[in-house]
Computed example of a mutant assay.
Amino acid sequence: MKRQWIPMLGLAVAISMCFSACGGADKRESSTEKRRTIIVGLEGDYTPYNWTTLSTSDAELIYPFTGQTGYAAGYDVLMAKRIAQEIGADLEIKKISWDGLILALESKSIDLIIAGMSPTQERMRAISFSDPYFVDTPELVIVVRNDGDYTTATTRADFANAMITAQQGTYHADILEQLPSKKATLLTDFVALMQSLKSGVVDGYIAERVVAEEHLRAHPEFHLVQLTGKEALVIPSEQGTTAIGLRKNDHQLRTEINAALAKISEEERRAMMDHAKIAASML
């Protein structure tokens, strides 16, 4: 499914509807009833789904990290805030490395993973997932340097002598097997990937276009290569879906989360994502 951009006027209206619909959620509880807290974990480095900022200029898009400096921002934050309001809970957000999110959930350091995570078969052996909160067809690109040897690459074979890497713990690492490139060490996050490319340690890394475009805005010395046709990198069908991770035995919470998601229309979800993309483009 192709990403659809809505006109700015429609975007403003949709965002307004989204957040006005959230208002008054606390009124469902009496003033004497103790509110519970849900703790959400995310990476804070996966624009436009989530990133870390010190700016408070867009109050709707941000939420302070618990026990850490700065604010979480992005689509996942909008979704976390909306869900907390729908189920009548206070919200905390913790910044956790990607490869530590499932461990944090299993150890009960967090209650939910809202981090652009796909419900793969491997992950479902450890945790459960909500209904999808965003569905799209990702486009994969290879991020390279403008001054490198691979800006004009059009086939997989063109990367035969390249050192291409990806983020560990993601399906991008599996995609590397589709390239005849040299084996490079997988890195923990996109900050490390960008630094390694910038310093020349690697020749490129795999990313989804929506994420890579934000990297390019921050690093104009980068270049995006997208292989097409028969040369295109094949993406597993499950990777077009993002869902919320929960512990397997949290059945009641999963029911509540799914009920909250059911109240958020596709139009609202697109508006929230577009809101995040526009904000990310201004970083």
Score class of each variant (00 low, 15 high):
Q85C: 14
F159R: 01
L78K: 14
N161E: 14
I110S: 14
T255Q: 00
D158L: 04
L91Y: 00
A232V: 04
A162R: 03
L187C: 01
D174V: 02
L176P: 13
K198V: 06
G229T: 07
L103F: 10
N50G: 07
E214Q: 13
P132I: 02
R209D: 10
P119Y: 12
Y71C: 11
E60H: 15
M282D: 13
S281C: 06
A153P: 05
K230F: 02
M1R: 05
G44L: 11
I102G: 01
R247K: 07
R35F: 08
L91T: 05
Q178V: 05
T53S: 14
W5V: 07
A73H: 09
L186Y: 04
L193G: 00
D149P: 04
K277G: 06
P7N: 10
S16R: 13
M273I: 01
T69S: 11
M17W: 15
L9C: 01
D147N: 12
G245L: 08
T53K: 15
L11D: 05
T165H: 06
S265V: 09
R247P: 01
D158F: 04
R3I: 10
K230R: 06
I39N: 11
V40A: 12
L9P: 01
L54E: 15
A126G: 09
S265D: 10
A207T: 02
D203I: 02
F19G: 03
G116I: 07
V141H: 01
H219Y: 11
R247Y: 03
D111N: 15
L283A: 01
Y171S: 06
K27G: 14
E221T: 02
R3P: 04
T170W: 04
Y171I: 01
T155R: 09
T185I: 11
D136Y: 09
H251Y: 14
I15Q: 00
T53P: 13
A280N: 10
A271N: 11
I175W: 06
E268T: 10
A126Y: 15
G70I: 01
D58S: 06
E106C: 02
M194K: 14
L283C: 00
E213Y: 07
L224V: 13
